[in-house]
Amino acid sequence: MTGLLIKELIARGDLQRCLIVCPDNLVEQWQDELCRRFHLPFEIMTNDKYEAARTGNWFTENPLSICRLDKLTHNEDAQEKLKTTDWDVVVCDEAHKMSTSFWGGEIRRTKRYKLGQLLPTLTRHFLLLTATPHNGKEEDFQLFMALVDGDRFEGKFRDGVHSINASDLMSRMIKEDLLKFDGRPLFPERKAYTAEYELSDGEADLYQRVTDVREEFNRAEQLANDRRRGTIGFALTVLQRRLAS
């Protein structure tokens, strides 16, 4: 979908410089997909290429660029050089990695979040991509949306005073809404029902023994160490689920 957008903007003469920021393990995939499907020659920023830049600024020499999120996050020199450039489109994949939250009543601005605040100042169009839901906290969601529109979502969220409406800034693809060219649903309707069956003596004995794990779970709940209690409880739950599967 991003490739279609980039290709269309190029065809309209509205895009000459595009920067894609994504996690380390996705840079080659982005480069391959954009080249193979859309014939777009994106360059990946590496240490060698960055140091060998003729002008001293790799970003100015590569109008179609792909950067690793953490490499850009922790490289202050690269960020300083990035500030001297401008882009038509900046794309951030797995954008939820740049989200942040309130901690003790204060905003906990991570280095990734600060990078997310920098990138939209360098471009006309800022595109955030993610398939990971946020944690459900309105105040944290507001901080995330502030990356797209800082003026609109600036300030601490106050429950009951206002609600966040980002419908004009978001495009959410739900599989139930996806259709084929003839108008039929792309995915068939999912129907859930309960299938009843009787356990054999051996199966019933195994199920009972696995269910007895709950006694150990209750013991774990009584531990004073919250972190250890959560770890043991999670391990017991996984054990019960996998053994009975």
Rank of each mutant, 00 (worst) to 15 (best):
I6H: 01
K7D: 10
E8I: 02
R12H: 12
G13A: 11
R17G: 02
I20D: 00
V27K: 05
E33Y: 03
C35H: 13
C35L: 14
H39N: 13
N47G: 15
D48A: 13
G56D: 07
W58Y: 14
W58L: 15
N62W: 01
I66T: 03
D77H: 11
A78Y: 06
A78I: 10
Q79P: 01
K83E: 14
V90T: 11
C92G: 02
D93F: 02
E94S: 12
G105R: 11
I107D: 00
I107E: 09
R112P: 00
K114F: 03
L115F: 09
G116V: 01
Q117V: 14
T123I: 05
L129Y: 09
A131P: 01
A131Q: 06
N135R: 11
G136Q: 07
E138Y: 08
F144L: 08
F144A: 02
A146Q: 04
V148I: 15
G150S: 15
D151H: 07
F153Q: 05
G155Q: 08
K156G: 04
H162S: 15
H162E: 14
S163E: 14
S163T: 12
L169W: 06
L179Q: 06
P185G: 04
L186K: 05
L186C: 05
L186W: 05
T194M: 11
E198C: 11
D201R: 14
D205F: 13
D205P: 00
F217A: 04
F217P: 00
N218C: 11
E221W: 06
Q222F: 02
Q222E: 15
D226A: 07
R227D: 15
G233F: 03
